[in-house]
Simulated scan of single mutants.
Amino acid sequence: MDAPGNIERLVELMARLPGLGPRSARRAVLHMLKKRGQVMAPLAQVLAEVAASARDCAICGNIGDADICPICRDERRANGEICVVENVADLWAMERGGAFRGRYHVLGGTLSALDSIGPEELRIPKLVQRVGDESAREVILALNATVDGQTTAHYIADVLGAAVKVTSLAQGVPIGGELDYLDDGTIGAALRARRGI
């Protein structure tokens, strides 16, 4: 039996979210309906508030509720290091780890000839400007180890040239990983990135 119109529409919209298919979306909607006061009403209110207040940081591209995000406002993080990431989810993942204490730059994607995404469609020109304006001493490329990610990394390194030190995250065997379960590319990258003990 199908749900009434508005409820079915809510299920359809929820199913568009990453990680939720139609069945998971239906379960989530039924749970929210069961707990309207504790879950659905507060969720609807917060969704409306975020929709009205969320904006991209004018400096780095992070998402927040002000024109300049807290990371860019924090003067302690103005240490000359800029970590370049593909999207905001990658920035948030880096922040969860707590290891990086500099500033970020969100590209908004990667170069892709097939999708007609060139440097101007991304925030690469803004990165080049920031490197000069902030007198950056290192740009860390934290891009995905995909063909498009590596193409983008090489392009950025070429554009920045000798103006700044350009590094990338190490790639290879994850902590707790077993060699038997890794693909050949990961093992090769780990071997090339080896270092002394």
Score class of each variant (00 low, 15 high):
Arg36His: 11
Gly64Trp: 02
Val166Leu: 09
Arg103Thr: 14
Gly188Asp: 09
Met40Pro: 03
Asn79Pro: 06
Gly108Asn: 06
Arg55Asp: 01
Leu169Pro: 08
Leu33Tyr: 11
Gly109Glu: 08
Lys126Met: 11
Met14Pro: 10
Gly64Lys: 02
Gly21Trp: 05
Leu141Val: 05
Leu17Ile: 03
Ala162Ile: 02
Gly177Lys: 07
Tyr155Pro: 02
Asn79Ala: 04
Ala25Lys: 05
Cys57Thr: 04
Ser24Pro: 01
Glu138His: 09
Cys69Trp: 09
Leu30Ile: 09
Ile63Arg: 09
Pro18Tyr: 01
Gly177Leu: 01
Leu143Tyr: 09
Glu81Ser: 10
Ala193Ile: 00
Glu121Trp: 03
Lys165Asp: 13
Glu81Asp: 12
Ala193Gly: 14
Ala136Glu: 02
Cys60Trp: 07
Gly61Ile: 04
Gly64Leu: 05
Asp67Lys: 14
Met40Gln: 12
Thr151Arg: 11
Glu49Arg: 13
Ile124Arg: 01
Ala136Asp: 07
Val46Ala: 14
Leu43Pro: 03
Ala162Asp: 15
Ala163Leu: 02
Gly108Thr: 01
Arg77Ala: 13
Arg130His: 10
Asp148Ala: 13
Leu13Asp: 10
Leu114His: 03
Arg195Asn: 14
Val106Cys: 07
Ile117Leu: 12
Ile197Gly: 15
Asp133Gln: 13
Gly196Thr: 15
Pro22Arg: 13
Cys60Tyr: 08
Cys83Tyr: 02
Arg96Ser: 13
Gly98Glu: 07
His105Lys: 03
Leu111Asp: 06
Gly172Asn: 11
Ile7Trp: 01
Leu122Glu: 03
Glu81Thr: 06
Thr167Tyr: 11
Ala54Phe: 02
Ile175Met: 14
Asp74Ile: 11
Ile7Pro: 00
Arg101His: 14
Gly177Tyr: 08
Gly161Lys: 05
Ala93Gln: 08
Arg195Trp: 02
Gln45Ile: 00
Asp90Pro: 00
Ala153Phe: 06
Arg76Asn: 15
Ser24Ala: 14
Pro18Thr: 03
Trp92Ser: 08
Arg26Asp: 09
Glu81Ile: 10
Lys165Arg: 15
Ile197Thr: 14
Leu182Ile: 06
Val50Lys: 04
Gly149Asp: 08
Ile140Phe: 05
Glu12Asp: 14
Asp65Glu: 15
Asp158Ala: 09
Asp158Pro: 00
Val131Trp: 01
Gly97Trp: 00
Leu141His: 07
Ile124Ser: 03
Val106Met: 06
Cys60Gln: 08
Cys83Pro: 08
Pro174Glu: 05
Leu182Met: 14
Arg26Ser: 11
Pro119Gly: 07
Ala89Thr: 09
Val46Gln: 14
Lys34Cys: 08
Ile156Arg: 04
Thr110Gly: 04
Ile7Arg: 02
Gly98Ile: 08
Asn144Tyr: 05
Ala51Ile: 00
Ile140Val: 15
Glu121Thr: 06
Lys126Gln: 15
Glu75Asp: 14
Arg9Cys: 00
Asp74Trp: 10
Leu143Lys: 06
Ile7His: 01
Asn62Lys: 05
Arg123Ala: 15
Gly196Gln: 15
Arg26Met: 12
Val147Glu: 10
Arg103His: 10
Thr151Lys: 01
Lys165Ile: 06
Ala58His: 08
Val39Arg: 04
Thr151Leu: 10
Ala163Thr: 12
Arg194Asn: 11
